[in-house]
């Protein structure tokens, strides 16, 4: 039965990917990419990877689609036909690579095999020792924040770096933007029902983000998902009530500071254990018993991750939307002249 759903979902994924490849309309292919992410999230649930599914649904189907759309708005919707010779060449290259890779799969262990090499090296240790060493039921969180804490630190820094990169590429504006932002009408001004429903929904979404943040020890969740959900709530608000209103609360300086603050919290927890005579990010020194210390450490570290992820997502969204705003205003001025 499980296998049947597996075959079906993967088939849907292939169909969506083919559709993305063949459509000329960028808008359609971006929406299809969102669909593709949602189907793969369903597939991850089937594969028992609930945390991953959670993240993929929030990131891939939500924020990623939105960013692609704002980029499309800045660049145009249709694409030219690919050249004939390149299409043939591409097909040849892709088929040769594909056949070679297919040949490689013949040596892979069977799907679902519990004795394949990946299953008997580290995973048994995590699954059997995590409860006594870390003391939280969700093994994914304990591996993420404690066993492989250094790795996650690196990932958080990568996210911050990407945020800085986007700012460096698009954040400056040649003409300093004046404070006439209020003159822009909120884009969804005429949508009464949307406004009312989103007003009802945004507080529960923010609350849910906090729940995901702090419940990550016991169920699927954690800093990455919570950060994305929190940012999604703010982005929803910005889309319905106007970006400039949201930016009055989440000022540019503040979110830049928050993005760096998250990494700082993470790093300081590491340094604290370092200075107390243990290894970097060894949380056992943070409290009187090692297990208690692990709880504290994981909570602080996840908080750092959540703050950085939410702030960077907001930075990226605000930067893109400021470009769209500027483009539209310049367009208006050109029309007037």
């Amino acid at each position: 039965m499980e296998m049947l759903v597996d075959v079906f979902l993967l088939g849907l994924l292939v169909a969506t990917a083919v559709a993305i490849s063949s459509t000329k309309d960028l808008f359609a292919s971006i929406m299809l990419t969102g669909l593709y992410s949602l189907i793969s999230a369903a597939f991850f649930v089937l594969m028992d990877a609930v945390d991953v599914a959670f993240t993929e649904a929030a990131v891939g189907a939500g924020i990623s689609t939105l960013l692609m759309l704002s980029c499309m708005k800045l660049t145009g919707q249709y694409e030219p036909k690919p050249h004939r010779h390149r299409r043939l060449l591409g097909l040849v290259v892709v088929s040769v690579t594909g056949v070679l890779l297919l040949f490689g799969t013949l040596d892979t262990p069977n799907f679902g095999d519990d004795h394949s090499p990946i299953q008997d090296h580290l995973a048994p240790h995590y699954l059997t020792k995590s409860m006594e060493e870390i003391g939280i039921p969700n093994v994914v969180t304990s591996v993420l924040a404690s066993y492989r804490g250094f790795d996650t630190f690196g990932e958080t820094v990568v996210i911050l770096t990407a945020g800085i990169g986007v700012l460096a590429l698009l954040g400056f504006s040649p003409k300093r933007q004046s404070d006439d932002l209020d003159s822009l009408v909120a884009p969804m001004h005429h949508q009464k029902i949307l406004r009312v429903v989103s007003k009802l929904l945004i507080p529960p979404i923010l609350l849910f983000a906090l729940y995901v943040q702090f419940h990550g020890d016991f169920g699927p969740g954690g800093g990455f998902q919570a950060g994305v959900i929190f940012a999604a709530a703010i982005i929803l608000y910005a889309m319905i009530f106007g970006v400039h209103v949201a930016r009055q609360v989440f000022r540019d300086g503040a979110i830049r500071l928050l993005a760096a603050l998250g990494v700082l919290i993470y790093g300081s927890v590491g340094l604290l254990s370092f200075l107390s005579g243990k290894n970097f990010l060894d949380y056992s020194v943070l409290s009187d018993t090692p297990q208690h210390g692990q709880h504290w450490g994981i909570m602080l570290v996840e908080m750092g991750v959540g703050i950085t992820v939410a702030a960077v997502m907001l930075i990226i969204f605000f930067t893109f939307s400021a470009r769209v705003d500027k483009r539209e205003r310049d367009g208006d001025e050109n029309q007037r002249q």
Binding site: V52, T55, V59, L144, D151, G222, G227, M313
Partner: peptide
């Protein structure tokens, strides 16, 4: 999980 967020 981390790769997805880094990916976006």
């Amino acid at each position: 999980l981390t790769a997805i967020v880094v990916g976006i």
